[in-house]
Design a protein around this nucleic acid. Structure first.
Lengths: 328, 328
DNA sequence: TTGTAGGCGTTATCAA
DNA sequence: TTGATAACGCCTACAA
């Protein structure tokens, strides 16, 4: 490229980047030549030189789980605005996969990472997190460390949920929880247990089913609940996707929602507001949360001294639709 | 790193990469030092040297549209297996955004690009496509050029759909089509028109509503159809997401599916099989299609002489669920 | 305002 | 089998 213009590389570089002053005429020539040749500076070379890749890795359990893309979209919104590109990695909740993906991201010298509901306490993971590369956690935080984190207010949310159902007269309320490794799942479960006790509802461990945030697990949960001698009159699912499975099994069992069973979700995925689904749920502004996480990450990337960790807890809001009713 | 081991860089490189023979003892030392120092070769430097980034860009309209992530997952499956990482870009169907994202990908020297339902005939886009960087198209192909392409058999699929409905006695069948710029939408629409004529159904241009693959557009379409003097008795939606909107509006209008209205989708997104949705639709193996596209891309990336373009047309399969019934 | 030169961290080539 | 060296394409002192 330099050759083509008759100017030296540094002049070309400066003309293109507009960093230092170059003669207007020189500049014009360079720009013209670049245009004509379709020349564009190599981001790779720049990354090597600057030791900055303008790239962030995002780890997700599985993009095709409906709850995930909305976070992703929020992250992307601010990433694009700030000139970053996203490297996407699916981990399927499998620790080794997560570790190897993180390693790959590091090898590619990403400027930072966003971990959406990923393992963050496993020693292999922690070892990477303790390195130089900035990161932010979404919806799953460490039990032992304080990191940059964006998550929902699970305590308040679950309390609202239980007290809403209790207000409708329900006393046997079941919970389909998420995987043990998920702090959000754990927090929601603990809040559930607390609220159930406070509000004088049944405290039956059998009413808690361990799921894994999938439709399938909600489906299994409901079949399990349905087979109990004393069925729950209401079910809270730890996320909407899983609530969809509960709905499905309920139909199969001939249980009408909300007549025979009240159902409450968490997350408020886009589909929950469809009349066919019509799921009452805790709304979570996922796109905004993704954006917030990315902003936190950028703050850390761009600051010279590592800022102190910040945890952003987003309040949830109960969205009442048609899946709950007072007990007959 | 080289310094730490007392060996020269090239030896270190070779020990780590295992390319050429190094003394077993030397090798051990290098590996040990790397382990101890947590050293990992820079992918950026390697990319610069090799002029290969092991990175592919994927352009999508919007990740949070449920039809998209499944393709993405398929792409990722083979990408990971082959050591590639995905750079994700949302374009929102906006041409300038697509162009600027493609430019960014080029700047980052991606080894190739996958365009999921993107503009591919606009001159700005074509200019980039005509460059050196390999690419594959999914679900939207060029009207004028023959590129590597993976898409559904829209002709056969739409024929099956119409003839299924005609077999149920429907004669007034409506279509909610996709954006003009989408070849899949166009192909489906043309196939619809042909089939409708062949099978002796109403050929009323009013029965075709131009949507854009969103829930919202399906919703609007149904309200439009619902207000007609002579309502259609069946609706075919150009994709499932849009069918969801039709369902929603139908509920709102007090039309029961399938009693008052038969509804057929396209794509078969995961959610369509939920009992609450229960949408009859054309199944499309989206994850497999994504994988196929990525394989096509790799073939092009890895071959010395550009192979001739290949179009892979995937047959669709009508999945009968509960959204269609014979006419009363 | 422009030119020169060094280095970012690899790999490939060539010589030892 | 190993060592030295030259790119890859960019940015940035520093010198002119």
């Amino acid at each position: 490229m330099a050759a083509a213009t008759g100017h030296v590389v540094s002049t070309v570089s400066n003309a293109l980047a507009g960093k230092r002053h170059v003669n207007e005429e020189t500049r014009r020539q360079v720009l013209e030549a670049a245009e004509r040749l379709g020349y564009r500076p190599s981001g790779v070379a720049r990354s090597l030189r600057l030791r900055l890749s303008s790239t962030v890795g995002v780890l997700v359990p599985d993009v095709s789980n409906p709850a995930i893309p909305e976070f992703l979209r929020g992250i992307d919104d601010v990433a694009v605005r700030e000139g970053y590109t996203i490297l996407l990695c699916n981990t399927d909740e499998v620790l080794e996969r997560q570790v190897s993906q993180m390693q790959t991201l590091l090898d590619r010298r990403v400027d930072g990472m966003v971990l959406i509901s990923q393992h963050c306490d496993a020693p292999e993971v922690r070892k990477i997190l303790d390195g130089e590369t900035p990161f932010v956690l979404i919806q799953r935080r460490s039990a032992r460390f304080r990191d940059d984190y964006v998550g929902s207010d699970n305590l308040q949310g679950m309390r609202d949920s239980v007290s809403y159902l209790a207000g409708l007269g329900h006393r046997r309320i079941a919970l389909v929880t998420g995987p043990v490794s998920s702090s959000t799942a754990t927090e929601r479960m603990e809040a559930f247990e607390g609220a159930v006790q406070e509000l004088g509802c049944a405290r039956d461990p059998q009413l808690i089913f361990r799921g894994d945030y999938t439709v399938q697990s909600g489906y299994e949960a409901m079949h399990y609940f349905g087979a109990m001698d004393e069925r729950p009159t209401a079910v809270i699912a730890s996320n909407d996707v899983c609530a969809l499975g509960v709905q499905d099994a309920a139909s199969e069992l001939g249980l009408s929602i909300p007549r025979d069973l009240s159902l409450l979700g968490c997350d408020d995925i886009d589909l929950s507001r469809l009349r066919r689904i019509d799921l009452s749920t805790l709304h979570l502004p996922k796109r905004e949360m993704g954006a917030t996480a990315m902003q936190l990450l950028l703050r850390r990337i761009q600051s010279n001294r590592p800022p102190t960790a910040r945890e952003v807890i987003i309040p949830t809001e109960l969205v009442l639709r048609g899946s709950c009713a007072s007990i007959a």
